[in-house]
Amino acid sequence: MDPLAAFNLLLLLAMGHFVADFGLQSDRMATEKCPGQGVVLGWGWWLCAHAAIHGFVVGWLTGVPLLGLAEWLVHACIDLGKCRRCYRMGLDQGLHLLCKVVWVLVAATCVPLQG
């Protein structure tokens, strides 16, 4: 993958992250995805659903479902750390965006993307 294509993919993944984290996440999901907060459904269901949205976006934009699965798992772990107050919103978002850099590097070096 050429550098411009990699940069463009990174931009799309970053934009997709903010759409999924702020546009597609309801207030209920944002609250109830944390342990002890599940009212309608258990918190694990909310967290799984939220992380799955992110996984879908990454899988869709990269064309690599396994990267989507990796995003799904890592996103859930990062959000769980935030829910448990291990860190705050700024570090949470930084970790999520760092993952996007990793996905681009993996896609650029290991996975031949078709364009």
Rank of each mutant, 00 (worst) to 15 (best):
L80Q: 10
A20V: 13
K33S: 10
L113T: 08
G94K: 15
A30Y: 00
G81D: 13
L69H: 01
W72Q: 08
H50G: 03
L13M: 06
V102I: 08
P3D: 00
D2V: 07
L113F: 10
Q25S: 02
V74T: 06
E71A: 12
I53H: 13
H75S: 11
V57M: 15
G42T: 07
G44E: 05
A51W: 08
Q25I: 11
G115N: 09
L47N: 03
V40A: 09
G42C: 10
E32G: 01
L12E: 01
L91Q: 14
L67P: 01
G42D: 05
P65K: 07
R85A: 09
T109E: 10
L9W: 08
M15E: 04
L47C: 07
K82Y: 05
P65C: 06
W60Y: 12
C110F: 05
G44Y: 01
I53S: 12
L10A: 05
L9E: 04
V58H: 05
V64P: 02
V104T: 08
L66Q: 08
A20C: 14
G94V: 08
G68R: 00
A30F: 08
V104Q: 08
A52V: 13
H50C: 04
A107R: 00
V39K: 02
R28P: 03
A107G: 03
W60V: 14
L47V: 10
L105G: 15
A76P: 05
W103K: 02
V102F: 15
A51I: 04
K100V: 01
Q93G: 03
R28Q: 11
N8A: 12
G68D: 09
